[in-house]
Measured scan of single mutants.
Amino acid sequence: GTEDLKEEAKKALKKGDKERAKRALKKAGLSEDQIKKFIKEVL
């Protein structure tokens, strides 16, 4: 589900894998702006 994808994105970001995080967030249905915001909040 969406929460799982967001968790996956957080883990990817902590490993420095932004591309993987972006893919997971796109799958979760987030827009580009939401993805940028999510990444900023996590990092």
Rank of each mutant, 00 (worst) to 15 (best):
K26N: 06
K6L: 15
E3T: 09
E7K: 08
E41V: 06
D33E: 13
T2G: 10
G1T: 14
R23Y: 07
K11F: 07
F38I: 04
E7V: 07
Q34W: 04
D33S: 11
K36H: 13
I35P: 00
K37G: 08
A28S: 05
A24G: 02
I35V: 06
Q34N: 05
R23W: 10
D17Q: 09
R23F: 07
S31P: 04
E41T: 09
F38K: 01
V42A: 10
E19K: 08
L13T: 02
T2D: 11
E7P: 01
K15Y: 11
L43N: 06
L30H: 02
K40G: 09
Q34A: 10
K6R: 10
I39G: 00
D4W: 15
Q34H: 05
G1K: 11
K18Y: 15
S31K: 05
E8D: 06
K37E: 15
A21Y: 02
E8A: 08
K14F: 12
K11I: 13
Q34F: 05
A28T: 03
E19D: 10
K40M: 14
G16H: 05
S31A: 05
G29E: 02
V42W: 14
S31N: 11
A28W: 04
R23T: 12
D17G: 02
R20Y: 11
L43W: 07
G1D: 13
L30A: 02
Q34E: 15
K27R: 09
T2P: 12
K40Y: 15
R23H: 11
K27M: 12
K22L: 15
D17H: 07
A12Q: 06
I39V: 05
K26C: 05
F38V: 03
A24K: 05
F38R: 00
L13P: 01
A28Q: 03
D4T: 10
E32S: 08
G16W: 04
K36Q: 14
L25W: 01
K22M: 15
E19R: 08
G1P: 11
A12E: 05
T2S: 11
G16R: 04
R20I: 07
K36A: 14
F38P: 00
K18T: 15
E3V: 09
L25Q: 00
I39R: 00
K18H: 15
I35M: 05
V42D: 03
Q34R: 03
V42G: 05
E3R: 08
A28K: 02
G29N: 04
D4F: 13
K10P: 01
D33T: 09
L13I: 11
A28C: 05
K11G: 06
E3M: 10
Q34T: 04
K27H: 07
L13A: 03
K15R: 13
F38E: 01
K26R: 14
T2L: 14
L30E: 01
D33V: 09
K14N: 09
G16Y: 04
A28M: 10
K6P: 03
A12W: 15
K36R: 12
G16P: 02
D17R: 04
I35W: 02
L30M: 12
K26A: 11
K10D: 02
D4S: 11
G16N: 06
L43A: 08
L25V: 00
D4L: 12
E8Q: 10
K14L: 15
A12N: 04
A21I: 03
A21T: 02
L5Y: 12
K14D: 06
K26Y: 09
T2I: 14
L43T: 08
K6N: 04
D33Y: 09
E3F: 08
I35C: 03
D4C: 10
K26L: 12
K6V: 14
K11Q: 14
K6F: 15
L25A: 01
K22W: 14
L43M: 11
E8V: 10
K11Y: 08
T2Q: 11
R20N: 10
A12V: 03
D4E: 12
A21D: 00
K37W: 09
K40E: 15
E7I: 07
K18V: 15
K11R: 13
L5V: 05
L30Q: 02
K11D: 13
K14P: 01
K36E: 15
E41M: 10
L30C: 05
A9F: 04
L43H: 06
K11T: 11
F38G: 00
K36C: 06
L13D: 01
K22Q: 11
K37C: 06
V42M: 10
A21M: 04
A28I: 06
T2F: 13
K15H: 13
R23Q: 14
K18F: 15
L30T: 00
A12Y: 14
A9G: 02
D33L: 09
A24Y: 15
R20Q: 12
L25N: 00
L25Y: 00
K40P: 01
K18S: 11
K37A: 14
S31Y: 02
E41F: 07
L13Y: 04
I35L: 03
K18A: 12
I39F: 11
I35S: 02
L25D: 00
D4M: 12
A12T: 02
Q34L: 06
A21S: 02
L13E: 00
S31L: 05
S31E: 05
I39T: 03
K15G: 11
D33A: 11
K14G: 09
A24D: 05
E41C: 05
I39K: 01
D33F: 07
A9H: 01
K15T: 12
E32C: 08
K18R: 13
L13K: 01
A12M: 10
K15E: 15
D33N: 09
T2V: 14
L13N: 01
K27S: 09
L5W: 14
I35A: 04
K36S: 12
A21Q: 01
G29R: 02
A9N: 01
E19Q: 08
E41I: 07
K11C: 05
G29L: 03
G29Q: 03
D17P: 00
K15A: 15
E41H: 08
S31G: 05
E8P: 01
D33R: 09
R20S: 14
G16C: 03
A28H: 04
K10N: 05
D4Y: 13
K26W: 06
K27A: 13
E19V: 08
L13C: 06
E32T: 07
E19M: 08
L13G: 01
E8T: 07
G1I: 13
K40H: 14
A24T: 08
K22I: 15
L43G: 06
S31V: 03
E3S: 10
E3G: 08
G29H: 03
I35G: 00
D4G: 10
L13R: 01
K6Y: 15
A12F: 13
K37Q: 15
K37M: 13
E41R: 07
A12H: 11
K27P: 00
T2N: 11
K18M: 15
T2Y: 13
K10G: 03
Q34V: 04
L25P: 00
E3Q: 10
A24N: 06
L43Q: 07
E3L: 10
E3K: 09
L5N: 04
K15S: 14
L30D: 00
K26Q: 13
L5I: 05
T2R: 10
K22H: 13
K26M: 12
F38S: 00
L43R: 05
V42C: 05
L5S: 04
K26I: 12
D17S: 03
E7Q: 09
L5Q: 04
E7N: 10
E32W: 09
A24M: 15
A24L: 15
K11M: 12
R23D: 14
K18D: 09
E32F: 06
R23N: 12
K15F: 11
L13H: 02
F38Y: 05
D17I: 02
S31H: 04
E19T: 07
R23K: 12
G29M: 03
K6D: 03
K10R: 15
K27I: 08
Q34K: 04
K14E: 13
E41L: 08
E41A: 10
A21P: 00
K11H: 11
K36F: 10
L30G: 00
K36M: 13
F38Q: 01
E19L: 08
D17M: 06
G1N: 14
K10Q: 06
L5A: 09
K14A: 13
G29S: 02
K14H: 11
K11N: 12
K11A: 14
K40W: 15
E19I: 07
G16F: 04
D17T: 01
D4I: 10
S31R: 05
K27C: 04
A12P: 02
K36L: 14
K10H: 07
F38C: 03
G16I: 02
K22V: 15
V42H: 14
A28E: 03
D33M: 09
A12D: 05
G16E: 02
L30V: 02
K6Q: 09
K10A: 09
E3D: 12
K14Y: 13
D4P: 07
L30W: 11
R20T: 14
D33P: 06
D4V: 11
A24S: 06
A9R: 01
E8K: 06
L5C: 07
L25R: 00
E19F: 06
K10V: 13
R20F: 11
K6T: 08
E41Q: 10
I39P: 01
A28G: 04
K37Y: 08
K27V: 07
I35T: 03
